[in-house]
Simulated scan of single mutants.
Amino acid sequence: MIRLARLAGLFAAILIAAVPTLALSQDALPSWREGRAKAAIVAFVQKVTTEGTSFVPVADRIAVFDNDGTLWSEQPYYFQLGFMIDRVKVLAPEHPEWKEKEPFKSILEGNLAGLASAGEKGIVELGMATHAEMTTDEFSKIVTDWFATARHPKFKRPYNEITFLPMRELLDYLRDNGFKTYIVSGGGVEFMRPMTQKMYGIPPEQVIGSSIETKYLLEGDTPVLTREPKIDFIDDGAGKPVGINKFIGHRPIFVAGNSDGDYEMLRWATAGDGPRFGMIVHHTDADREYAYDRDSHFGKLDKALTEAGTRNWLLVDMKADWGRIYSFEDR
């Protein structure tokens, strides 16, 4: 009986000792192909989570991610622009003047080239017409309903399925290692917040984005927040590090983007003391997704692409480094 008890204890000790090894042997990033990119990510996470000179306390393990083109696709146009296009069509009967007014005229005629020529000014005008003069609750419901029914023009699937599986794995991997993950995007903050928990496991309070002015009002005796047709904050380019400082209050140690709109965020985050990791998703797969960089109207990657090597930012080659891009792909 004593011998059996000793054998049982020995067996239990062997199992306990083996648990860390088994956990480490599991692939936390299965959609990433073995290679330099995956190895660099794993090496950085192991370095900052292992006791030693490069160890980073949990409170300082902040990771920020751009959204458009980094966590979900942004071609043939930004998802939020797709939302605006659909909203214009819904609201058009109330605005007969749009038949002759750009950029609304181009949308109603299906002229995407004309819409593109409207530039930033035209996009802002679309945003004010389709995003404002309603309560925050009303807008959240409209966005949620749109995501439930709208389909991506290329893949003919719901937009909430057009997220990058390798990046979702990366978010989970970082969180499993004590990181707090944020979205820092040029997209509208209230356009993203209804969906980010379900899509990425990122709660609304950890989403930073562009915003329009919001006011407190009473409808009868009911307090509401109303969305005004006026820009409050643009969270793009140099606005991204400003937004991080304002809303997070920590300089991130891990930053991921995909375009020149993320350049200043990459510069600022990786310029801090201690271990830092900058990463750029390079869209190189025209068959499974899209291939674009320096000349794209959406997600232009030029300056950041040129400087990635000298600034030690990891350039992730989508075609070479990702075994799967979307969860609906065949294994």
Rank of each mutant, 00 (worst) to 15 (best):
M1Q: 01
L4C: 02
R6P: 00
R6W: 14
G9C: 13
F11H: 13
I16H: 08
A17P: 02
V19Y: 08
W32D: 06
E34S: 14
G35I: 08
K38F: 08
A40K: 03
A43K: 13
V48W: 00
E51A: 15
G52W: 00
V58M: 09
F65S: 02
L71N: 04
S73Y: 08
E74V: 08
E74F: 04
Y77S: 04
Y78R: 06
Y78A: 11
M84G: 00
D86K: 07
V88T: 05
L91Y: 10
L91G: 11
A92T: 02
P96E: 08
E97Y: 12
W98T: 01
K99L: 14
E100V: 12
P103L: 12
I107S: 04
L108V: 05
G114R: 05
L115I: 12
S117E: 15
E120F: 12
E120T: 14
K121Y: 09
G122Q: 12
G122H: 12
I123S: 04
V124G: 01
V124P: 02
L126Y: 01
G127Q: 07
T130M: 06
T135E: 08
T136P: 00
E138D: 14
E138V: 08
E138F: 06
I142E: 14
V143S: 04
V143E: 08
T149Y: 06
H152I: 07
K156S: 11
R157C: 03
E169C: 08
L170C: 11
L171G: 04
L171I: 15
D176E: 12
N177W: 03
N177I: 00
K180L: 05
S185D: 12
G187I: 14
G187D: 14
G188D: 13
V189S: 10
E190A: 02
M195C: 08
T196M: 12
T196V: 11
G201T: 11
I202D: 04
Q206C: 09
S210M: 10
S211M: 11
E213V: 11
T214M: 14
K215V: 09
Y216D: 15
P223I: 13
L225H: 14
L225N: 15
R227L: 11
R227A: 05
K230A: 13
I231Y: 07
D232W: 09
I234S: 11
I234C: 05
G237N: 09
A238G: 07
A238N: 06
A238I: 07
P241T: 06
F254S: 00
A256S: 15
A256W: 01
A256N: 05
G257W: 01
N258P: 06
N258Q: 05
G261T: 04
M265E: 02
T270M: 03
R276Y: 04
G278K: 00
H282Q: 06
H283V: 00
R288I: 09
Y292F: 15
Y292V: 02
H297C: 11
L301I: 08
D302G: 05
D302I: 01
A304E: 04
L305A: 07
G309S: 11
G309Q: 12
N312I: 01
N312G: 08
W313S: 07
W313G: 02
L315T: 05
V316C: 07
D317K: 01
D317W: 00
G323I: 00
R324C: 03
I325W: 02
S327Y: 10
E329D: 10
R331E: 15
